[in-house]
Nucleic acid binder design. Sequence first.
DNA 1: GATCTTATTCGAAGGGTTGGAAGAAGAGCG
DNA 2: CGCTCTTCTTCCAACCCTTCGAATAAGATC
Lengths: 418, 418
Amino acid sequence: MIRRTSQDIRRLNRFEVLRRVYAGPGAMSRQDVAAATGLSFATVANLTAELLEAGVLVEAGHEESGGGRPRARLAVNAERGALIGVDIAETSVHAELFDLALTVRHSVERPLPPGDVRPSDVVDALAGAVGELLAASGTDRARVLGAGVSVPGMVEREGGVSSFSPYWSWHEVPLRALLDERLGLPLWLDNPLRASTVAEMWCGAGREVDDLVVLTLRAGVGAGIAIGGQLYRGFTNSAGEWGHTCLALDGRPCTCGNRGCVEAYVSLRGIAETWRELAPGDARATGPDDAVTVAALARAADAGDPAAAAAIDRIGRYLGAPVATLVNLVNPQVVVVGNQVVDLLGERLLPVAYEAVGRHALALPHRAATLCRSTVPHNPVTLGAATFALEGFLDDREVFGPVSRMRKAAKGGAGAGG
Amino acid sequence: MIRRTSQDIRRLNRFEVLRRVYAGPGAMSRQDVAAATGLSFATVANLTAELLEAGVLVEAGHEESGGGRPRARLAVNAERGALIGVDIAETSVHAELFDLALTVRHSVERPLPPGDVRPSDVVDALAGAVGELLAASGTDRARVLGAGVSVPGMVEREGGVSSFSPYWSWHEVPLRALLDERLGLPLWLDNPLRASTVAEMWCGAGREVDDLVVLTLRAGVGAGIAIGGQLYRGFTNSAGEWGHTCLALDGRPCTCGNRGCVEAYVSLRGIAETWRELAPGDARATGPDDAVTVAALARAADAGDPAAAAAIDRIGRYLGAPVATLVNLVNPQVVVVGNQVVDLLGERLLPVAYEAVGRHALALPHRAATLCRSTVPHNPVTLGAATFALEGFLDDREVFGPVSRMRKAAKGGAGAGG
DNA sequence: GATCTTATTCGAAGGGTTGGAAGAAGAGCG
DNA sequence: CGCTCTTCTTCCAACCCTTCGAATAAGATC
């Protein structure tokens, strides 16, 4: 039922080549790319020619040669266009403008009203943020190649519909339709898990690797899965919902209505809750903002507070078991953990968690998997959202046609077009 | 790093076409296959021509036509050759002979000595069973296209090495090397999880579906995952190890040395254990053979024993939560449950389990997934093992060369061979 | 400036799929 | 029986993609 054509090969190879150039430490030659991808040199030359023609890559000088023709250095043409990545979170909308090299150029954050946010609130905040972004950076809207938007919960990607939100009582909200005319930009919707994963694939530990799991730990938690170098979406684009894995039968109540979910233990809220359990009288553990509480926990632990240390120890064990589940089930090459929880607690939490993973996972998949912290700078969700836009642009048949078209263009000149 | 060539497309399409013929209710025309696979008619004609020439398919009469040329019926040529599937289990070796249509022709079972079985014991039993199989069925060894062997635990497939066995103290046992000369047959090794999965893909619910999870519940438990119509193996061929998912922090001890694993609750042993917990005095629950105990549990429940009913209820809940984990994480189209536990307890256990899955899984992936019992007849592990041999045969470049070779052969006749 | 060495480009070949024309095979009817 | 109609199959040319190897380009070195 899955249609496989040779053009898919082309498309994947195009992605692969470009990803290597992004990955490269700034000086990637065609030779390097060929070696790294395993493609023949001719193919790499083909693909880079196409990417050069499209303006996505540029040749930036030459490497030094020890005799013989020097290799041309390939680089991403950051100025080819702009990308926008938007992270819709529980309390705010965060929008960032990237250049084509995926470096942040401008950043805007707009708060959302507290409580049950309506779709129109989000649309207003988002459109406002994007407008501000463009104005502040002096970017012409026409130069923006696309905008990626991350919406929490379940997203029907093709239709651009948010079919379920964990925070607000949204059902089947047609976000794309609502945003389309307000933005006037090619739009790509998905959720934070998949955005973070794609960010890792282009800019993080996923660059070198085919089978990858990316853990997103913030207000909600979940996993993104990449298999064979491609994001795995599942049958209805909801694969990777790891947050509601049962960690403890009849355990803590979770926002999903169930008990004992992973999310109830290792989300920001779950972490705060564990601290409260272990430090009943501690006022620092009782604030309304979980992120603040977790930051306080980190400080308390650093200051040698024994209850805080005990809490982190326990949280690490809570985290280790379900990570081991992932390792056993997916058998990935790399597991990346990232986002707020890790930013706040990483130093202390991860060693404990890693050790717990070792106890729970089977030897073979455990040995095979490298666990690491995300090295993606800044907010992986906005970056990933922008990457969706980048991928969308790379799929544009107007820009990247079949090879024969190129050959014809090269031969026939500007002749009988149409 | 993954090399993608157009020949892979060909290979996958060949599989796809053949799988449809296996799936078909006995009368599949080229037209039907084209419609079912989404391939163009020309391609289907191409591929069937190749399969006909190789003798894998035959044309078996014509469909009735209401005017117009009647469609040719395609069928698998059962007599093209034989396949052997072997299931190495804890206490016995089960070997079966299949024809090419994957129907069982002969079946042999040999006990293994109790305790810590040596590799040579297994090799002897296996070689003996295969010999008996061939002798009893009067099959010439040369007619056997290959043998698939399922070994519990971790298997290094390429090298044919059993790198870890959960029952015996095996480490890096080179089974292929040991078996090769004894059998003199093309050999394919893997584990029961993946064997069952492949069996479902060719003969069960997986025929119609691209994203699939197959649960194997017997002495050990685990999942097989198929994605995009292909078995997913993970980085080191150990994906799907679901049995040691943590179900209850600090719960029951498991054979793996850990606590609270799924396997400790829903394997044959785990089920017996639960019954013992709930019916402390019941002698039926204390036998040495877990399969016998579980069968007794089924009878007790059928007879209206309240403790047995309570046990099944609880086991169903134990099963539901980790199945929901799979549903959330993999977001498959179908989840098939099968093997001994289901054979013995299915009627009573599965409804309870299904209900528990509904409570634990998220709405969207839960709605997307159909849970069903395996419809594969007989032992899915031997069948799956034989299917590995079938797949191996279909990959044989001697038999299924590139298209151009066919075209040449058709044109040039029997001329300048070599 | 000739020679060496290495990088790119180019063209032909090889592997695949597909749409459409041409051939094949029954059914129906005069 | 032969013609026509309909539908299935085969065959061919067109197209897409990768890759090998020869030819060409571009510095370094002597």
